[in-house]
Nucleic acid binder design. Structure first.
Length: 459
RNA sequence: GGCGAGUUAGCCAAGUGGUAAGGCAGAGGUCUGCAAAACCUCCACCGCGGGUUCGAAUCCCGCACUCGCCUCCA
């Protein structure tokens, strides 16, 4: 029995996970910028966070998760203006779509989904604290964070920021920073932009400050876990650390977890800019099932490895998921109160506790199924063994959430199957085939086995 | 240029010292009125070259290639 180990970006290694408050995990997960539909690359990260959440819950922790909705930001300002809409009018459909997609992929809801626009005051307060601590300066009506006032800057990304001088890749600033590496906390209003009147002046918050302000409001000044995609490590999370710790003097987050990117089939990062992405909606329209998408993104690779997304991956996922369904069907109806076999359950749990190694866990699960099948086939499996196997399947499904277990017996279906068996008995195969077709139309696939007919729902 | 990750079968992928999990696809087989499904079996010289070791996919050195970050980005 070992405890949960997680890879901490800050240390660059696996660490035992121990929350500040025993039994309770406070975690902050960076959410979507709602200027468009999130693509499946975004959802890979959200699925990784769902995996993390479920494993923590299964470990017996109470979890308080916060996921922000970034609803004020350059692209949103620009697009809403183009559409002649307020920020809220513009973002609302995308926020709705985001929650729909979460449901489609069976991603568990976080406890809080704070919106940036509803926490302007908290952000302003935080900036004021930073000013009191001497970390800020004002230029052209905008407030900036002075990197040089925070020596630890660069620790998370393991970047030597002294080399990050104004050079090839550091943007020529549009507002007038003292040092190109500094980042904006509060942006002065520009003509035509939606803005807020605050003690800092009329304007809007910079991108990074919302996460610091909202995480602290809902979770306190030190978080157990902060998670997101790898691309957020720098500068976003680095800036969050500077802002938060610059204000509080306390460690901002104890464990930093980052999911690797989803790539397109050619191995390039999936991104809005490259236009090489699909949305959940696209894939559904192409006929892929939600659970195939979920399974593919969740088990296709360990969360810290890049994953190349392709139709083959989805098809493989679809087949694998159906094989899990099939196993459940073959187990038949069993007692519901059984316990999973200790060995397979142990291997499954151990894999997950080893930095959420779901691909390995799934490997163990299929190994178990493979070994169990011959016993089912030969009829040697006892009722107790079948019940235990079913318990294992249900245990795994607490994480996977893709298996469709056989439903309750349907009287009409049973009647038709009996009628078909009678027809087959008298060798009236025309009638038998007719009934099989009728059942198929009802979404029931009938398979004849040597132990008699077996049916399952499809779709 | 700096930092980091990676290179395992047709595809995806686990595996950090004891002679390669698993999934998908493929081939063969069993079953079957037909069909479908299911089940079984088979399918890897672990990027290349050195080295350490009784023993290396796993450790060390070198090389090649890929990807990411260093700028908005899950």
């Amino acid at each position: 029995m070992t405890s949960l180990r997680l890879h901490n970006t800050m240390s660059g290694r696996l660490e035992q996970f121990v929350p500040i408050e025993p039994g309770h995990v406070r975690m902050y997960t960076c959410g979507p910028t709602v200027h468009d539909y999130s693509h499946i690359g975004n959802f890979r990260t959200f699925l990784f966070e769902d995996l993390l959440r479920r494993v923590l819950l299964q470990q017996g922790y109470r979890v308080t998760q916060v996921m922000n909705l970034t609803d004020v930001e350059d692209r949103i300002i620009k697009k809403s203006a183009e559409h002649g809409q307020t920020i809220d009018e513009f973002t609302e459909p995308y926020i709705e779509a985001f929650f729909q997609d979460l449901d489609t992929l069976r991603i568990q809801r976080a406890e809080h989904y704070p919106r940036a626009t509803q926490h302007i005051f908290e952000m302003v307060s935080l900036i004021e604290r930073l000013t009191e601590n001497g970390h800020t300066y004002v230029a052209d009506g905008s407030t900036y964070f002075r990197i040089s006032s925070f020596p630890r800057y660069g620790a998370l990304a393991h970047l030597d920021v002294s080399g990050l001088k104004a050079g090839a890749r550091v943007d020529v600033d549009e507002y007038g920073k003292d040092d190109p590496r500094d980042f904006v906390l509060w942006k002065a209003r520009k003509p035509g932009e939606q803005s807020w009147e605050t003690p800092l002046g009329t304007g809007r918050p910079g991108w990074h400050i919302e996460c610091s302000a909202m995480s602290m409001q809902y979770l306190g000044e030190t978080l157990d876990i902060h998670a997101g995609g790898v691309d957020l490590i720098f500068p976003h999370h680095e800036d969050e650390i500077a802002q938060s710790e610059g204000a509080t003097g306390k460690t901002f987050a104890r464990y930093w977890l980052h999911a690797q990117h989803l790539q397109d089939a050619t191995g390039e990062k999936m991104s809005k800019r490259l236009r090489n992405f699909s949305t959940v909606r696209d894939l559904l329209a192409e006929g892929y099932t939600p659970r195939a998408i979920r399974y593919a993104l969740l088990t296709g690779a360990h969360y810290r490895s890049p994953l190349a997304f392709s139709p083959e991956l989805l098809k493989a996922a679809d087949s694998a998921v159906k094989r899990l369904d099939e196993f459940a069907v073959r187990l038949g109806s069993v007692a519901a109160d059984a316990e999973a076999p200790a060995d397979i359950r142990g291997r499954w749990d151990e894999a997950l506790k080893d930095d959420l190694n779901l691909p390995a866990a799934v490997g163990h699960l299929f190994e178990f199924i493979k070994a169990f099948n011959p016993r089912l086939e030969s009829g040697k499996a006892t009722a107790a063994e079948r019940a235990a196997a079913m318990a294992m399947l249900r245990h795994a499904n607490l994480i996977l959430d893709v298996i469709e277990f056989p439903g309750a017996v349907d009287a009409e279906v049973e009647r038709l199957i009996a009628e078909r068996e009678a027809a087959r008995e008298r060798r009236d195969f025309g009638r038998a085939d007719e009934i099989r077709k009728q059942l198929l139309a009802m979404g029931i696939q009938l398979d004849d086995t040597k132990d008699g007919p077996r049916w399952k729902r499809i779709r």
